[in-house]
């Protein structure tokens, strides 16, 4: 879980499943690809899975699953064109796997406020499922950040390239500061957090660790609360498109860097090998897990799903 505390009373009704959010800042790192194949892994294990395309303006999850552009999308529900969330839930043709597609003209939804997002999420839980997977868009819009925070499990997808890693750090920082901002009412402290988001801030505060020591001096209780939040915040990390052993190790390096810089302890759940078969599958608009179930990337996906469910770290002994 991203945040393990007190989130049970968040209006999820009788929903006993888990919500996973897949994000990571940069576009093109394979978030949709991983979301869809992760969904297939879970569905093949007999779980009911609902995939939700929350990528604003860039919805393409349906393409990863090989379904044609859906007639009904999430925005039909938000605009109240249909009465129930179930009306926009479509069958993917894959057993136990259903999909709510985002629309291409989804952008106006970008202005939904927190309460609306919570309501939307609650609606999603009315679709009977064990897992709800949210495919988040690129960037660090409040929408993306909030969905990431609401989820039980936040998953960050990174490719082993500088821009992707930089964006991932920016994403982590934005998510984290947004979370801190949401838990305090103290206006002064919220101002400080907003100020600190700017790297060249006058306070000279660069890292969340420095921020928290600064806050602690002002208000010990809030500082303490923030410390607890840091400990609870445990996003999962996936490295996509790895080609070398060095690429795999970047995951460990990112984990270490985040711990030393942000104080955030990520769980490196696994990597997906780069493979021609993935791109062949993508071109055919077929999930690679179904096209090439015995391929190395498919095995990688299965291990990732397992590690997330078991809350385990990638074990170096078993690197393929």
């Amino acid at each position: 879980m991203v945040f393990e505390s007190g989130d049970n009373g968040n209006g999820r009704g009788s929903f006993n499943g888990q919500i996973w959010a897949i994000g990571g800042g940069k576009g093109g790192t394979g978030k949709s690809l991983i979301t869809s194949n992760l969904g297939i892994c879970l569905s093949r294990a007999g779980k009911e899975v609902l995939l939700v395309d929350a990528d604003l303006g860039g919805a393409n999850l349906h393409s990863c699953l090989g379904t044609s552009f859906p007639n009904v999308t999430l925005s039909d529900f938000i605009r109240k064109k249909v009465p129930s969330i179930k009306n926009v839930t479509i069958n993917t043709g894959i057993p136990h796997l259903s999909l709510i597609s985002g629309a291409e003209d989804y952008l106006e939804v970008a202005n939904t406020n927190y309460a609306q997002k919570m309501r939307l999420l609650k609606q999603l839980t009315y679709v009977e499922s064990d897992y709800i997977l949210l495919d988040l868009g690129a960037g660090t819009s409040f929408n993306t950040l909030d969905f990431f925070l609401i989820a039980d499990c936040g998953i960050i997808v990174v490719t082993p390239e500088p821009t992707s890693i930089e964006n991932a750090y920016r994403f982590i920082k934005s998510v984290f500061y947004r979370r801190l901002k949401r838990i305090v009412n103290n206006h002064g402290i919220r101002e400080i957090i907003a100020e600190v988001m700017d790297r060249k801030n006058e306070l000279g505060i660069k890292t969340p660790i420095e921020l928290i020591s600064h806050i602690e001096v002002i208000d010990k209780a809030i500082g303490q609360r923030f410390k607890e939040e840091v400990l609870k915040f445990k996003p999962k990390l996936i490295i996509n498109s790895v080609r070398t052993r060095g690429d795999i190790n970047i995951g460990f390096s990112i984990k270490s860097t985040c711990l030393k810089y942000f104080g955030i302890n990520m769980t490196y759940v696994g990597y997906v090998e780069y493979d021609e078969s993935i791109w062949q599958a993508v071109r055919r608009r077929r999930p690679f897990l179904l096209e090439y179930p015995n391929s190395r990337p498919a095995k990688c996906m299965e291990r990732i799903a397992k590690n997330i469910i078991m809350n385990k770290e990638l074990d170096e002994e078993f690197i393929l």
Binding site: P162, E166, Y169, I250, S253, Y261, E316
Partner: peptide, 22 residues
């Protein structure tokens, strides 16, 4: 031993993981 090797790899070269933060 493993942790040491990993840390060396992360912080000695020009690691993609560190340059933008440290």
């Amino acid at each position: 031993e493993d942790a040491y090797k990993r840390a060396k790899e992360t912080y000695s070269g020009e690691s993609l993981a560190t340059y933008s933060l440290f």
